[in-house]
Amino acid sequence: MIILIFLLAAAVVVGAAIYLNQFGDVISKKSSLSGAVVGTFLIAGATSLPELTTSLTAVYIDNPDIAVGNMLGSNVFNLLILAVVDLLYRKRRLFQKINTKANVPSALIGLLFLIILIVSLLIPGTISLFGVGIEMIVIVLLYVLSMKYISSDDGEQEEVPTKDYSLRTAVIGFIVAALIVFVSGSILSISGDRLAEATGMNASFVGSFLIAASTSLPELVTVLAAFKLANYNMAIGSILGSNLFNIQLLVLTDVLYRDAPILSAVGSSHIYTAILGVVMTLVIVYLLLRPSVIRNQWRYAAPSLVMALLYIVASYILF
């Protein structure tokens, strides 16, 4: 029964998050809030709301392993999405048709964030300030400082089309979808906690892989929509940007977890998820920087295949 509830909650999260993304896009285009910064924040918040509500509920039920695992696992799953799409559409040479300057900084900053988290997980007795790990404060400061170095492709790009809702309908729909995501995300976290207890599965595994995969499916839909239009910069940029945003949500999770700095309250298995994220991000950086003269499709797709295999092996080990 608990498995059925988990699967139903995951399905509702995905469906509601897709509509949340669509309504948010309409609002950013049709309201006085329109503009690159506000629009990006609105869409990023909409796409990441499942991760946020799930992790905050995990904090509320005092399961920090699911909270941290969900954020780290979502980032890893997002990179897996890129790898799988690149494999399936290897003839299109995804990473040979993008603006390197617009994407490498985001990948490198995400890599730096993961390294900071790994160091914090490895060092016992993390330093805290007002109950928040010092590493989280460093991450926020670096995020703010790095914003000016994250380039965006200023060229004309085709946008992913959305349904033509009225502004009033979009606002109401956004609020309703957000409430649905909040409730279903909470149920997903609670049922995941119960699933770990009932089956004896590691809570870190449940958070890092099962829940993380469920809450990251909206990103998959966004990437496929952008890829269908051959908007490859949007496909890659949305994933790398989502990963940076998720780490900031992890900071918020630490702020709201008042027992101790959250990284000091979780199991050591999260180190492996973070290391997996580092390795997969390094592969992404390599794909972004390597020469675009590879003609053989399987030689081109080999790094993405490596990423997919690494994810499967890590899932098996943690399980």
Score class of each variant (00 low, 15 high):
A36D: 04
T40S: 15
S189W: 01
F209P: 07
L112H: 08
A36C: 00
I312T: 13
A196T: 12
I139S: 04
V68R: 01
G267C: 10
S264P: 09
N243C: 02
G45P: 02
D154L: 07
L288Q: 11
A230M: 15
V171S: 04
P291G: 08
I18M: 09
L256K: 02
V278N: 11
P218S: 13
L224W: 08
V85R: 03
Y149C: 01
P303G: 06
T126F: 04
V181D: 08
S208P: 09
Y149H: 13
V306H: 06
T47L: 08
M147I: 08
L122A: 04
L167S: 00
S208L: 14
A213V: 11
I317E: 11
N202C: 10
G69D: 06
T162A: 12
L8Y: 07
L305E: 07
L188H: 04
N99D: 13
F182T: 12
T281I: 15
S315H: 12
L80Q: 13
A274H: 10
N233M: 08
M1H: 05
V59N: 07
V84S: 02
M136G: 13
Y165D: 00
P50C: 08
V85P: 09
S128H: 01
G200P: 00
S166F: 11
Y257K: 12
L111M: 15
A203R: 15
M1Y: 02
N21S: 13
T40K: 10
A226Q: 00
